[in-house]
Amino acid sequence: MPQSLATPPGFVMWRTLPQGDDPGWKRQWFGNELDAGAVLNVRGIGIREPMFNADVHRPIGTGDWLIMFFHRPARLRRGEVEPSVEANTLVLWPPGAEQFYSFGTVANVEPHSWMHVEGSWVAAQVDENRLPVGTPIVLEDDALVVATLESMMEEMTAHEVPDRIILGNHFQNWARSVARSLQTRDPQHRIPAAILAVRAHLDEHVAALPVLDDLATIAGMSRSHLCHQFRRYFGTTISRYVVRKRMSLAERLLYDVTVRPGQIACMVGYPDIYQFSKQFKKTFGVSPTRYRRQHARANEG
């Protein structure tokens, strides 16, 4: 059975599991290393975990996909005191996207289920099934989410070496089932293929300066309509999406000490290292060099 880590990554507000009787919920962290080249990496799973922390806000996300299901009404907008989404709401936050969530009314009681996953397989299934990203969607009940998380956790914990194909099948079946449920009840939830094509182009050419006219041609619509549709489905502007993708990639590349900051700047679309450092500090609060130094010390410890 894989050995779980003693501490999760810094972006997770963690609490020790209760000792003794089964608390009625599950949580397991499987690793804290982001892998930019991963096909499918299951980093953590929680099932019916009470929401301990109020107003969890991550301006640039967690570097991976956070897929979260709220069993009860929850707050997904900053500054609100009343729940903004109903029970059985699902949200898919992609790498680099801003995250905010909180319990609806009572801490330590209201449950949520979640998984931290990353890799090209995850993105491919989300795109192929046209699942809404960053937009709350309501499912009929929690059975689909909980059953999949139970199966994935079983695969991750019951075997010395988890089978990535089995895990991939679980995730694919879940994505297809969610898509079928949404399409049956509300075809408007489907992300248009034209908008997905624009996002795929941005992801593939993250270092290039996006030209709105070119993106509009790919989408087959006017520039203003494209901007409106992109924000509608992905919850952010095209320019902010590109910056988040660039900074997320830069963060990962800084873990490779063989790559100089100047090289990373060019790799993520900043020929001018000054502009790259300025944007990185604006995003993470420290310069790229200091960020690398801090995390190098943390890894040594």
Rank of each mutant, 00 (worst) to 15 (best):
W174I: 04
V12S: 03
N32F: 01
H71F: 03
R58I: 08
C266S: 12
E110P: 06
P23Y: 04
I191W: 01
L139D: 09
R164Y: 02
A97M: 15
L76K: 02
V56G: 01
L167H: 05
P132N: 12
P111N: 10
D55E: 09
V12C: 04
E82V: 05
E49W: 01
L167I: 05
D141A: 04
R190H: 10
P9W: 07
A6S: 12
A36I: 11
R293M: 09
S113V: 09
N108R: 14
F52V: 11
A74D: 05
V126T: 11
E300C: 01
A194F: 00
G168P: 04
R292H: 06
V138N: 07
R246S: 02
V243E: 13
N299K: 09
Q99D: 01
Q19G: 07
H71S: 12
T105R: 15
A74Q: 04
P94I: 03
T283S: 09
S151V: 03
Y101Q: 03
A298N: 00
I67Q: 04
A216D: 02
P111A: 14
F30K: 02
G285S: 10
V161F: 08
F284M: 11
Q3P: 00
A147I: 03
Y255F: 12
E33K: 11
V91I: 15
D64S: 09
P288T: 07
C266H: 10
G119M: 06
L90H: 07
S181W: 00
R75V: 12
V146T: 14
E155N: 06
A207N: 04
D22F: 12
Q279I: 14
P192W: 00
G301D: 01
V126A: 07
